[in-house]
């Protein structure tokens, strides 16, 4: 019983981090049709900002704030420098550009900062373990769940209530007609990138709180998980990104907990088999399952 509780808490915290990353990816994909393979590098950018700011001895919270801002700026720069010039080119051009950006950034961290792991001091309160019976969770895992929840709710309100939010939803449906409304394309796209950077910054904070270090390849794994999340959940839908992220997190944590020791080395493989089996049955992702039920209920 306690096991199940901690699987749910930890699963949701891991899944929440994937969901934050996946949301940013899905938003850019919905609006521009661009699959940004370099999205995970925003995590590394956040990590290195934290590392260097920590050297100045600032309070941890301030460091995190600046690091998240760095992720937003990083995302805006990506758009301005790499993606805006090729905006009207085809899908393949965008994909290859983002792949190139990913490689440039990774080798940049490697050559200009350090090829090795740099440790970042995480304050005790953040990794403090809270007991629940014979199990429990750490502060940052609690923060992950709350942060994901708050972010998803605020993003939903933003997309429903503000004109920029409406414009983003409209642009995801039909970009040229959105421009016919007199809406500035650059403003909509820059906002989308800024939000994706903000969410990546949050995710990076959670990822770093968990591992206490940064290295040139740190963005790779969460980046890949975010891709799997949006496909697992249902491409180009924001609810799909959240659902996919949460399910993937829960799946990984429950496999890690419940698999017999002999099978543990295969946990990644097993989780991918589950994802692929779901996609074989429901090619449009998890969201389509729920939508179908909704339709049947009516």
């Amino acid at each position: 019983m306690y096991d199940l509780l901690s699987v749910i808490i930890i699963g949701c915290s891991v899944g929440g981090m994937y969901a934050l990353l996946a949301l940013g990816l899905a938003m850019i994909f919905a609006i521009l049709g661009l699959l940004n393979l370099a999205h995970g590098e925003l995590i590394a950018a956040t990590g290195y900002t934290m590392f260097f700011l920590a050297l100045t001895g600032m309070p941890f919270i301030v460091i995190v704030m600046f690091a998240v801002i760095a992720a937003v700026i990083g995302a805006l720069l990506m758009e301005r420098i790499a993606f805006r010039p090729i905006r009207n080119a085809g899908v393949a051009t965008g994909l290859i550009t983002s792949f190139g950006l990913e490689i440039i950034l990774q080798s940049g961290w490697q050559n200009f900062i350090s090829p090795t792991r740099l440790s970042i001091d995480i304050p005790m309160w953040l990794i403090r373990f809270w007991d629940i019976g014979d199990t429990g969770f750490s502060t940052f895992q609690g923060i992950a769940i709350v942060l994901t929840l708050v972010t998803v709710v605020s993003l939903t309100i933003f997309l429903k209530r503000t004109t920029v939010g409406l414009a983003m939803r409209a642009a995801a449906e039909n970009f040229p007609v959105t421009q016919l409304m007199g809406i500035r394309a650059n403003a909509v796209i820059a906002t989308a990138f800024a939000i994706s950077g903000l969410l990546a910054g949050f995710a990076a904070f959670l990822w770093i709180a968990q591992r206490g270090s940064c290295d040139p390849h740190m963005g790779l794994e969460p980046g890949i998980m975010a891709f799997i999340s949006i496909i697992f959940g249902g491409t180009a839908s924001l609810s799909g990104a959240v659902l996919g992220g949460l399910f993937l997190g829960l799946l990984q944590v429950s496999l890690r907990t419940y698999l017999p020791d002999a099978l543990l080395p295969f946990q990644q493989a097993i989780s991918y088999i589950v994802v692929i089996s779901v996609l074989v049955r429901w090619p449009d992702g998890l969201v389509s399952i729920f939508k179908k039920e909704e339709r049947e209920r009516r």
Partner: peptide, 19 residues
């Protein structure tokens, strides 16, 4: 080419987005 996923009201709101 109305925005199908948006409500009628939201479509009209976007129509005035430049004002």
């Amino acid at each position: 080419q109305v925005f199908a996923g948006l409500t009628v009201y939201e479509n009209l709101r976007l129509g005035a987005a430049a004002r």
